[in-house]
């Protein structure tokens, strides 16, 4: 299975290493043409403003929407989750979401870096116990629409959700060395 990881900026290498360790092929995607032959795309953590500007300059908005329409699964972590939302709360004035998933996400919801944290999460659909969530200047999911399943919450806030071939996590599984969410994406979300 070929998984693209959007490599404009951010923690894309850690995602790629985790997929490779699970036996999938991963591709660093820097230009939209590279989306043509992947079954899934990860939009990684990074700075959502920097990533969205580069996405616009290089024509990724239409390309991702189009490929998703044709069956490509998409998983956004942190900044990626922000960009997949229908509405970004506390966005920059010109920051456009992809709008592929029926959720509203608030940027920097917990505060500044000093408020970044780790916590154990009950992640629905994962076996073998809790998952260690690493939240870095993280957003949270403030609204989920119909057809969106909540997969994990932290202190009453939605931090992971899924809508058919779309997955969002506001935390960073790629920084933990625990591949269970990557395995979940490959097994349950891609091709669903």
């Amino acid at each position: 299975m070929r998984i693209g990881v959007l490599a404009l900026q951010g923690a894309f290498r850690e995602h790629m290493m985790t997929f490779e360790a699970l036996g999938a092929t991963s591709v660093a995607v820097r230009l939209p043409e590279q989306l043509n032959d992947v079954s899934g795309l990860v939009i990684p953590g990074g700075e959502s403003t920097a990533i969205s500007k580069l996405m616009r300059t290089y024509g990724f908005y239409d390309a991702i929407r189009q490929q998703h329409g044709a069956g490509m699964a998409v998983w956004g972590t942190c900044a990626g989750a922000i960009l997949m939302a229908r509405t970004i709360l506390d966005a920059l004035p010109d920051q456009e979401p992809l709008g592929v998933m029926d959720i509203d996400v608030r940027r920097n919801a917990y505060g500044r870096q000093i408020d970044s944290f780790e916590a154990d999460l009950d992640f629905r659909g994962l076996s073998d116990g809790t998952f260690r969530g690493v939240f870095i200047r993280a957003p949270w999911i403030e609204r989920t629409g119909e057809g969106v399943d909540v997969l994990a919450e932290h202190e009453g806030r939605v931090v992971a959700a899924r809508q058919r071939t779309l997955l969002v996590t506001t935390f960073h599984p790629e920084l933990t060395g625990d591949p269970r969410v990557h395995r979940f994406f490959l097994d349950e979300v891609v091709g669903a």
Binding site: G10, G45, E47, A50, E118, V134, I136, L175
Partner: peptide, 17 residues
């Protein structure tokens, strides 16, 4: 809060930037 992983993690998010 303030763990080494959230400290180094922010730097990971800045990569390529």
């Amino acid at each position: 809060t303030g763990t080494l992983r959230v400290k180094t993690g922010l730097a990971e998010m800045l990569k390529g930037g």
